[in-house]
Design a protein around this nucleic acid. Structure first.
Lengths: 193, 193, 193, 193
DNA sequence: CCGTAAGCGAGACGGTACGTCAAGTCTTGCT
DNA sequence: AGCAAGACTTGACGTACCGTCTCGCTTACGG
């Protein structure tokens, strides 16, 4: 009977070594060349230990990224909505651009054909940012910088969509100026009919 | 010296069999389970023949998709810009939704870590659609439905971004009504400052 | 670093299955058609397991033959030297004649261009027989059937040489009577000057 | 209908280029690494041309060796039988010892599992030497150096056997002195009962 | 405080696919 | 028709990782 492992007896130092090794290797060779074998070897850990706690290499990377708490910088509130969005999007873009992009884009790619992983990725990494984003937008609504009946789902699409569209087809990430323009247009688009 | 193969002597029927087999297998088992071995077996072709003409399974799928000319339906001009965009985006969404999505999303995922493939994908599949899109937009400008100084790159971002953002994080593709709303907001956002 | 495998953890049943499969296939299709692939399939074993423990198919066959301890019948002592040599040589000839010859002659052929294998073959299979042969000859010397100063290396050449000469050029193995004649002449040749 | 090729229209310069390339490559990389591909490339010849005229790489090498007329030096007659045999055997040993041995031992090895090739090898290369050997022995018989009823087949076995026995198991070729001893003993063994 | 059951490292195992190599066949265009 | 060139199918090569599976060990818990 394969009893599920007991989290209480888990070896925390192995866990850290695995997550660190995974990120290192990802940075060195790219997500594509990342293998469980290599993670185990680098971490000085048995493959069995990895398989005991994670279902796939994607899950390892996801946890590793999740552990680095504020990779996607949280939404700040300086009172200037466009500026705050610019700050936040710049952080996201940073993550999606070499040399930092390997782990995150690899994870995104894998999630495209792994439904389980996709769900985990969305719930653990993306959803909280969406929530933070909408919170910031609601503050803007309360402060009158945004119409109270603006559709925040549409806002999400217009603000974040461009970044990922460009990521997917290697169309080039916007620089600071282009980003400013994009945000301005997106905010204009949010106005309700 | 490994001389490059001579395209003139290429066996066209093998080429077709390979592309067809690749698409079939992709539809049956998903891009993730697609292997060069299996394509060769299904196509009744030697692995060598595949490796002779393509550098990776992604390249095979790309050519297969490229061969199906109008997968991404071309931009039409009925005179109603919003309706035409709706038509075109619906076709794209169709391609990115089960059960048709395997080949295309698989290709997109692979292109995320394969720079060569990414370039091919962009130049052969994406760029022509972007051009067609901008052509349609210019017609709209000429017809006065769109300001003559609207930034068409921003337009591209706002119109297509949302679809891919939702694809990546499995946020759910917009239905017909949501799509209409999105397009309306995007068109509003395009207005120059 | 490819650490050498740990013999203590070796799976004996895999080892046996591999050796048995190798001999079977050799008998069925001949040494020339023997492949690692086929051995692995027949033995229900992964190719990796074969490569882990043996450097070549020759080495597998060598171990398989070596395992069948007394293939080259040991030298007996009935007191009649010529008769005993006849018995022993008959056993060797048996091994080198269809339908039993495939594994042994295949191994000999491979050893002709593989120095490593040649050394293994000599030390594990041939040397012990040479030693046994010389032991038997020394008994004959002690018993006065052979001059005490006979050169046993020359004896080895004259007794065994003819068999392998005939094997190499398919000149036909000697039958029982021819063998008797050969031995008689060889023994006569051994006499010291 | 695959009509057999017409020898009259054969391109002699291709034939020579092939045989030369085969011997060169054999000397450079050893018989084991010799391939039809490599011969064709080196000779500047199409693979088809090789397959048209020879059934296997062994056959190519056999013809190449056969073409070099007197590889196995012919038997001479100085009047001294032992000395003449020594001369002849030295030439054979030369051929079977590095760095000259690759082609000949490779051919011998291949003939061990290729019956066709074995027959060709025996009839084209070996048989003539056997005949020459027996002719020389008959001269010795006529001259009284050898009993008139000596068994020349046994003689062949005792004289040549040792060399091939040592070749097969890498027991070391005899040096000039050992060879003299061996011949002396063999000649002694030939005496009829 | 001591046995025992878990997690652990190590790494062998049966597999699948990889990308390469050579075999031998076939087609095309040149001489 | 013979030939060079070279694309083709076939099949084996030896390697890389996969995910599963013992092995001893060590570690912490629970009787």
């Amino acid at each position: 009977m394969p009893t599920p492992p007991n989290p209480l007896r888990r070896n925390e130092s192995s866990r850290r070594a695995i997550l660190d090794a995974a990120l290192q290797l990802c940075a060195e060779d790219g997500y594509g060349r990342l293998t469980i074998e290599a993670i185990a070897a680098r971490a000085g850990v048995s493959k069995k230990t990895i398989y005991r706690w994670w279902p796939s290499k994607g899950a390892v990377i996801l946890e590793a990224i999740d552990d680095m708490a504020d990779l996607f910088a949280d939404h700040v509130d300086t009172g200037d909505l466009a500026a705050d969005l610019h700050t936040q999007l710049s952080a996201v873009i940073e993550l999606l651009t070499p040399p930092n992009n390997s782990a995150v884009t690899g994870l995104i790619a894998e999630a495209l054909h792994d439904k389980e992983l996709a769900n985990d990725l969305r719930e653990r990494l993306i959803r909280p940012r969406i929530t933070a984003f909408k919170d910031r937008m609601r503050i803007a609504q309360a402060g009158g910088q945004l119409p109270p009946d603006a559709d925040l789902d549409v806002a999400l699409d217009l603000i974040y969509g461009p970044v990922y569209h460009r990521l997917l087809f290697h169309l080039g990430m916007p620089d600071a100026e282009q980003l400013r323009t994009l945000i301005a247009h997106a905010l204009r688009g949010i106005q309700p009919a």
